[in-house]
Amino acid sequence: MDVVVIILTVSALVFFFATTVGLLRFPDFYSRMHAAGKGDTLSSLIMLMALVFYNFHEFNLANLLVSMKILLIAVFIFMASPTATHAIIDAGYESDIEPWTKKPEEES
């Protein structure tokens, strides 16, 4: 059980790191929001799964209830976080932010 928790936590941290790198390095508002929205949701979900498995150290009813509640929080995040990303990108689209196009005369 410990191994599962460690694997899940480390993978959540890896995805979070990738999200942050993407947030800093992408050239455009839309691609940055794409990285932030997806990576954020995914790493939060993996972290919560790690906590669910960590709770199963003692297998009694109270811990099972706590794990159920953590799963409910995960469902809520899965519904709310992509919607928030959609709202931010919509606001950007409405204020006419230009998408990044690759300029042919620049060497990147």
Partner: peptide, 14 residues
Amino acid sequence: ISEGYPDTIIRFVA
């Protein structure tokens, strides 16, 4: 930014 642009996804999820 916009005067109440009615967005289906946000309204449904909310």
